[in-house]
Structure formats: C-alpha cells, structure tokens
Design a protein around this nucleic acid. Structure first.
Ligand code: SF4
Ligand code: SF4
Lengths: 145, 145
DNA sequence: TTAATTAAAGATAAAATACTCTTAATTATT
DNA sequence: AATAATTAAGAGTATTTTATCTTTAATTAA
C-alpha cells in the first residue's frame, strides 16, 4: 500500500529540503538539490515544474536561477502538495476504485471508507510544510538527506 | 489512490457473493461465479486458489466440484482477505513506502500516518464477511452484480 | 555572444498489474 | 476403464502505470 508515488515523495522531500534551508535566500538550484537529495535531475525538474504551474513554487531561468516558494511554507498544506502531484481527486477516490458509485447507492463499506478517508484528508489539510520543516527530526532523517 | 488491486476487488466481490448466497449449499462453481460477476474465469480461479492456499476457502475438484468456505464468513475479516491477496504487510507499510525506517527514527509524518493506518487496520480487522454479506444493500449494488 | 539555467514535450525503460494459456491432477459418472 | 467436469499450478503475454531520459526551446546574467 504505497499511498503516494515517487513523484509525490520526491516533491515532498524537495519542498521539505527547501523549507528547512530557507536561510539560503535566493533561488534553489535544481541540480544542486537533485544531487543533495539523490533524485534524478530531470525527474525532479519535471516535478518542480508542475509545482510551479500549480502556483506553489516560482522559477527563474538563467544563471543563478532556480526555484523558490511562491506561497509561504506556512500556507502550503500537505494536501496542496499531494493534490498537485497525485491529482485533484486524490482524497476523493474510492477504496475499491470503482467509478460512478457513491452516496446515492453506497456499498456496505462506504461508511467505513469515508470516515477513514476524511481523517487522512483532515490531517493533510491541516499540516503545512512549515510545520514539518520546523521539525528538528528532519535534520537527522534521510527524508531530506 | 486505488487502495486495493483488482485481485483484491475481485476476491472481495467473490466472497461477498458467496456469503450472500449461502442457501446454495454445496460447492460454488467458479465458471458460474465468473459469469455472474463478470470476471475472467482464469483470473478468478487464480485468486480463489490463493484464498484456498491461505486456508480461507476449500476446493473440490471434478464434476460438481467448486469452492466453498473453509472458515465461516463470521470468522473471516476483511483484513484476512486483504492480507491474503495484497500481502501480509499490507497494513504495516509506510505512507511513503520508504523501507527500513520506523519507530527508531521516525520522520515527521510518522505519527499522523500511524494513527490513520491503525484506524484502517482496526476497521478491517473487526469487519467480517458475514457483516457485509448480511447487508441488504449488497443485493441492489453492483458489487455482487 | 556565451554560458547557465528552467520549460516543455516526447521517447524510452522498467516495473507492476492484469489477464491468458496450457497442462496436470482429481473426481463423478457411465 | 473411459470420459467428462472440474480445480491446481505454473508459465506466458499484454496492458497500464510509473519512472526516467533526451532533446530542443526559452530566458537571463555576465
Ligand atoms: S459505495 Fe463502496 S465502492 Fe462506491 S465509492 Fe463508496 S466505498 Fe467505494
Ligand atoms: S518514519 Fe516516516 S517514512 Fe518512515 S515509516 Fe514512518 S511515516 Fe514512513
């Protein structure tokens, strides 16, 4: 049960890295980050492009260019990140993946699933990158290398 | 976020079908079930074989053979089924899928994840096939066609 | 003008999932 | 004993999804 894909994982790690290295100021160089986090440069670039398109990050091309936060880490929730990288309907999908069913004629597991799913959703919607970035444990955990 | 695979879905649907058609007595013919549930015969056969190997079902070869419950539906939890078809560690995996980390040096999301995961686990461990099979809604829902 | 960067789109590779085929074993019926 | 009806088992193929790479374009600083 891998819940989020590599894209999601890498995106999360990259943003956590950025959030916990903000003293850096200026733009983060993607190549440097990909080396640091041991993620393919091209793959990371693509992920960050998506986050830029979604209005979470801001990019700047050319020498000394790179990416930085557009929104503040305090205003970026885990849910924002996950939705951007895994799809807007990430928190609305069914346990079974059956399309087209739901409230109208719910299967016997619907209620269980809704409650569990809503817990997850709430946690992710109320946790910001800043919350995580400030967590000192990050520094000793390989999540951000 | 499809949480369970087709195998899991088909297995669940097959067992629900069986649980809610127990008046049938005797063995369920797999071909008939696969027609009824619109699942590939060979694929369903394979899934049911696994459940037989795991001690959930019982099979009988030859004419009028088929499968039936070895354990009673009241004694088969959703967790049993899911573990059999998705792997024993289904409820113990990490949100990120990172191997080798955990309690010792948890990442900042560990606590959230544990609590959510344990909810899911508890629901699935306390819900039996009989609970679901007795649910009248099943009869009008396409889960069991 | 050149070098350093990100943007974008498409191609490819790898892995996971879903499904199929073939042959063997078992059992009932004739 | 022969035949037909079934499940068992394992290998094989196809499809889909995920992950990664390649190439070219656009932007910017020096
Ligand atoms: S009714 Fe059942 S199958 Fe449909 S969305 Fe709810 S949990 Fe999923
Ligand atoms: S510490 Fe974090 S990455 Fe590790 S198992 Fe827990 S949630 Fe997953």
């Amino acid at each position: 049960m891998r819940v989020i894909s590599k894209s999601g994982e890498y995106g999360l790690r990259a943003l956590l890295y950025m959030a916990s290295n903000q003293e850096n100021a200026g733009y983060f160089n993607i190549r440097e980050m990909s080396d640091e986090l041991d993620i393919s440069f091209h793959f990371l670039t693509k992920i960050l492009q998506v986050l830029t398109q979604k209005g979470i990050l801001q990019s700047y091309r050319g020498p000394n260019g790179g990416i930085t936060f557009l929104k503040n880490p305090e205003d970026i929730t885990l849910a924002d990140l996950i939705r951007a990288l895994e799809g807007d309907d990430f928190f609305d999908k069914c346990l079974l993946g059956l399309p087209g069913c739901g409230e109208r004629q719910p299967c016997p597991m619907h209620a269980y699933w809704m409650s569990i799913r809503n817990n997850l959703k709430t946690e992710f919607e109320t946790t910001t990158l800043a919350d995580l970035g400030n967590d000192t444990r990050l520094k000793q955990f390989r999540l951000i290398a």
